[in-house]
Simulated assay, not measured.
Amino acid sequence: MLWELIATLVAGLGAAGIALAIRFISRKKAPRWLIPVFAGLGMLSFQVQSEYNWYSHQAGLLPEGLEVVRTVEQQTFWRPWSYLYPQTLRFIAADIANAAPNQRNEAIWLVDLYFFERRLSAKKVVQVVHCQQHARADFTTQLAIPAPGEAISADWYQLEQNDPLLLALCQRQKV
């Protein structure tokens, strides 16, 4: 975040420098208020650009085997441009490459989910996914793993059949 602050200040100084150049070229006929306006617009433009590029930059840094399974786009009133083009400020990636099948029931997979949010550290949550019953559960020592054909308990959350986590993980099982 410190580097982003420094980059924002540098963008403001650079834009103010452009305004100074305009005043120099116009032999000081351009108004003086142009300098702070350019500085503010430069800093605001840099922040907007960095907010919109955050997701693609972070997703590009993910190691091979991690797949983005969900993105969260946000619109806020203090960012009116987000109503035209919503910003992706959070996403979830699943470690598909290192997912492991359960030895008791091969339709159940253990997978690490990573939660990314702008300006926060990534969080890791271990999940258990049941491919046949389209469900997921938080991995705990108290979680009852059903045998093949057995019904799941209330600790499990139902998933849609087209849920990206379910599709990414269960497609791997069939390969």
Rank of each mutant, 00 (worst) to 15 (best):
I152V: 15
E160A: 14
V128Y: 08
V129G: 04
K124F: 00
Y157E: 14
E150H: 08
V125E: 13
Q133S: 09
A137K: 04
A122K: 14
V125N: 11
A144D: 08
C131R: 00
L120G: 01
A144R: 11
A151S: 13
S121N: 13
V128T: 11
A122P: 12
E150F: 04
W156C: 03
Y157T: 12
A147D: 14
A154G: 10
D138Y: 08
T140L: 03
A144N: 09
A147E: 14
D155T: 01
T140S: 14
F139M: 11
H130D: 15
Q133D: 10
C131L: 05
R119V: 02
P148I: 04
H134G: 02
A144E: 11
H130W: 05
L159H: 01
V129Y: 00
A137Q: 06
L120F: 09
L143V: 06
Q142E: 14
F139K: 09
T141A: 13
Q158S: 14
V126N: 04
A137Y: 02
A147H: 08
S153D: 11
A137C: 08
A135L: 04
H130C: 05
E150R: 08
I145V: 10
V129W: 01
E160I: 00
T140C: 03
F139W: 08
A137P: 03
A154H: 14
A154W: 09
R119T: 05
A122F: 04
V128P: 03
Q161H: 13
H130I: 02
L143D: 06
A154V: 14
H134I: 02
R136F: 03
Q158L: 13
Q161P: 11
I152M: 09
I152H: 05
N162I: 06
A135W: 01
Y157A: 11
R136L: 11
V128L: 10
R136H: 07
L143N: 06
Q161G: 10
D138W: 06
V128R: 09
V129S: 04
D163H: 07
V126H: 03
D163V: 01
Q142R: 11
Y157S: 13
N162V: 09
S121L: 08
F139Q: 13
A147V: 08
A137T: 07
Q158W: 05
E160T: 09
D138N: 14
K124V: 09
N162Q: 15
A147M: 11
I145G: 00
D138M: 10
Q133W: 00
W156F: 10
W156R: 02
L120T: 10
K123Q: 12
Q161A: 15
A135M: 06
P148V: 04
D155H: 09
L120M: 10
A147Y: 07
V125K: 14
A122G: 08
R119Q: 12
A147P: 05
V128D: 02
R119G: 03
A122M: 12
V126R: 08
K123S: 10
Q158F: 05
H130E: 06
Q132T: 13
V125W: 06
V128G: 02
V126S: 12
A151D: 14
D163K: 02
C131D: 01
E150A: 15
K124E: 07
H134Y: 10
I152W: 01
C131G: 02
I152Q: 05
K123P: 00
W156L: 05
W156H: 05
C131E: 01
Y157D: 13
